[in-house]
Design a binder for these strands. Structure first.
Lengths: 131, 131
DNA sequence: TATGGGGCTTCCAGTCACTGGAAGGTCAAG
DNA sequence: CTTGACCTTCCAGTGACTGGAAGCCCCATA
C-alpha cells in the first residue's frame, strides 16, 4: 500500500502519517522508487493511533499504548493505569470548562446585547472582585 | 511600576506581559534605563486580559474585547456576540470531552487491571467497529 | 568603593501535533 | 508525449507562551 491507501483506510491524512513516521510511531518499508510501502500491520497501528488520538491521548501516551499493544506479555494493569490517568485529566478539563461556561453564561445572560455601551460582560472582566 | 510589580498585581508572569507587549496588547512606556514603565491603566488592561484568558478567550478574542472595553461608544451587542460564540465553543468542547470520557470509562471499567495481558482497552482501540 | 544579588533587557529556541506550501520525482492513462 | 494524480523532502507557521543565555541596572551592605 502507498501512503494514500493507508490514509484512506485509516482516516489519517498523509501528512500526519509521515509525521508519525518522523517521530518513530510507524516504520513503513520503502519501495525502489522511494515511496513508503505499508503493510497491513502498519495500517492496524495507524488505525489504533487514530482511535487513541481521537480519545485525546497524547502522542507519548499513544506511543506507550502502542508498545503495550504489541507486547504479548504486557500486564493489563499498565494499560489501565495510562487510561485512568487520562480519564482523570479529561474529567479535570471538563470541570474547568464547566466553570468557564457557568461564569460566561451568567455574564451573557446579564447583557442586553443592544446598541448601548453598558455591558456586564466587560464589567465582569474588568472587576477586581471574586471570580 | 516595573514589570515585576504589574506581574505581582495582575497575576501574570513577566514573560507573558512582555509577550503581550510584543503582540501589541499593551504599550507600556519606557524609562531612561530602558525598563518598561506601566501605568495604572496598563495594569487594568493586563488584569482584564488575565481574566478573559482564564475564561478561555483566545488572544484575538481578547484583543477585540479589549478594543470594545476601551471604546466608549461600543454596542454591548458586539461584546455579547463574541462571548456567545465563545460559549458555544466551550459547550462544544465539553460535549466532545464527555464523549471521550464515556467511551474511556466503559473501557477502563471493563479492564481487570491485573498482570494478565487481556485488555478490553487495547481491544477497543484496535477494533474496526463503531466508536 | 567593591561586591553581591535580584531585577531588568533582548534574543533564540522549544513546546504540541500537526498543516501548508514549494520544488521536484514517479506513474498510469490517453 | 503529455497530463494529472500521486509521491518525495524540506521549510515554515500555528497558539500562547516558557526556558534559558548573555548582559545591563540598581540598591544595600561591608
Amino acid at each position: 500500500m502507498n501512503i494514500g491507501d493507508v490514509a484512506a483506510r485509516s482516516g489519517l491524512p498523509p501528512k500526519t502519517i509521515r509525521y508519525y513516521e518522523d517521530i518513530g510511531l510507524v516504520r513503513p518499508q520503502r519501495g525502489e522508487n522511494g515511496y513508503r510501502r505499508f503493510r497491513e500491520t502498519d495500517l492496524h497501528k495507524l488505525s489504533f493511533l487514530g482511535r487513541a488520538r481521537s480519545l485525546g491521548f497524547s502522542i507519548e501516551e499513544c506511543r506507550n499504548l502502542l508498545a503495550l499493544y504489541e507486547d504479548e506479555g504486557r500486564a493489563s494493569a499498565d494499560v489501565r493505569r495510562i487510561a485512568s490517568a487520562h480519564l482523570d485529566e479529561i474529567t479535570r478539563k471538563i470541570a474547568e470548562l464547566q466553570a468557564m461556561r457557568d461564569t460566561l453564561t451568567t455574564l451573557v445572560e446579564a447583557c442586553s446585547g443592544d446598541d448601548r455601551p453598558d455591558c456586564p460582560i466587560l464589567t465582569g472582566l474588568s472587576r477586581a472582585g471574586a471570580d
